[in-house]
Computed example of a mutant assay.
Amino acid sequence: MSDPEPPSDLADLDWVDEPVTLDRDACARFDRDGFVLLRDVLPAEKLARIGEEITALTLALNEEDRPLEERDTYDRAFLQVMNLWRHSERVKRFVFGRRLAGLAAELLGKDGVRLYHDQSLYKEPSGGITPAHADQYYWPLSSDRTVTAWIPLQPVPEEMGPLAFFAGSQHAELGRDLPISDESEATIRREMQAQGFPLVQSPFALGDVSFHAGWTFHLAGANQSDRPRSVMTMIYMDKDIRLAAPTNSFQENDRATWMPGARVGEVVDTPLNPILIDKG
């Protein structure tokens, strides 16, 4: 009989709980634009190491085996796996880290945040665009006090498809009824231009993290390089947010999958939605 696997060493991940100070105007920029890109939030070398584990898990757990040319626009955008934290103690340590959760709470103007779910996004070489959309279309939640941290696991120059945001679009109503698709790409781009919301895009260095609000419209370009673009995301929500009655089939699925047992009108307090930081 082989020896049991030794427990994972988590000591080298203590940095995920170390607090960082926001720029003086970061919260104001987030409130105004619906997103903020923060430079050098995470230590690059240490992020690269946990990034290797996240990428390996993504490839191991992903079930997509069709070649790119046989997929639709959404499936060409990236390989994705949710709640990686349930498959690895080290990834759990990263996802539950208080550094990014604390920034999320501060940007939302809340005492604390819960985890909605994590999501890895692996855009293959020659992978397609990520169509314009707003995340909160998928979430049956009682308020817009939600924010997603987008964390590249390697540098993302423009040719690899960095995330781009329509600044100020979190206040726009048109397009909120569109799932991510060819239609959302065409309609939202057209309406954002018509309403004067500029598209803001810039490269990400390793260690940079962006945060965007649930209703901020965003997109990403194709990966035109010969290297994969691996990204980890964490979706945070106000610790006191409540489950709302789902308004579409995607929200029905999210309720069942990411908030099992939560009841409409009650705080989303389930084992899959732990409070990650509470300053109250």
Score class of each variant (00 low, 15 high):
97 G>N: 12
136 Q>N: 14
161 G>T: 07
32 R>L: 11
146 T>M: 07
58 T>A: 03
143 S>Y: 06
112 G>D: 14
162 P>A: 06
101 A>F: 10
86 R>Q: 12
62 N>A: 12
71 R>H: 03
154 Q>F: 04
54 I>W: 02
123 K>T: 11
98 R>G: 06
103 L>Q: 12
118 D>A: 03
130 T>L: 12
79 L>W: 10
152 P>L: 09
161 G>D: 06
38 L>Y: 09
125 P>E: 08
59 L>K: 06
38 L>Q: 10
136 Q>K: 04
44 A>M: 06
59 L>P: 00
34 G>R: 08
147 V>P: 01
128 G>P: 02
48 A>T: 09
113 V>E: 05
33 D>H: 09
70 E>R: 05
137 Y>V: 14
126 S>I: 04
158 E>G: 00
69 E>S: 10
162 P>I: 03
132 A>K: 01
73 T>P: 00
45 E>P: 00
138 Y>C: 05
121 L>V: 13
106 E>D: 15
51 G>R: 02
153 L>F: 04
92 K>C: 02
87 H>Q: 12
35 F>Y: 15
167 A>P: 13
119 Q>L: 14
82 M>T: 14
87 H>L: 02
32 R>T: 14
35 F>W: 12
80 Q>E: 15
162 P>C: 07
140 P>Q: 05
54 I>P: 01
92 K>I: 01
60 A>E: 15
65 D>T: 11
73 T>L: 14
133 H>R: 09
51 G>Y: 02
112 G>C: 13
134 A>C: 15
122 Y>P: 04
41 V>P: 03
87 H>T: 10
29 R>V: 14
70 E>I: 03
79 L>Q: 11
102 G>S: 13
132 A>E: 02
60 A>H: 10
57 L>V: 06
68 L>Y: 05
98 R>M: 10
29 R>N: 07
151 I>Y: 01
111 D>V: 01
155 P>D: 15
39 R>W: 04
139 W>E: 01
153 L>I: 08
122 Y>V: 10
90 R>Q: 09
79 L>P: 00
27 C>G: 14
138 Y>V: 02
129 I>V: 14
131 P>V: 02
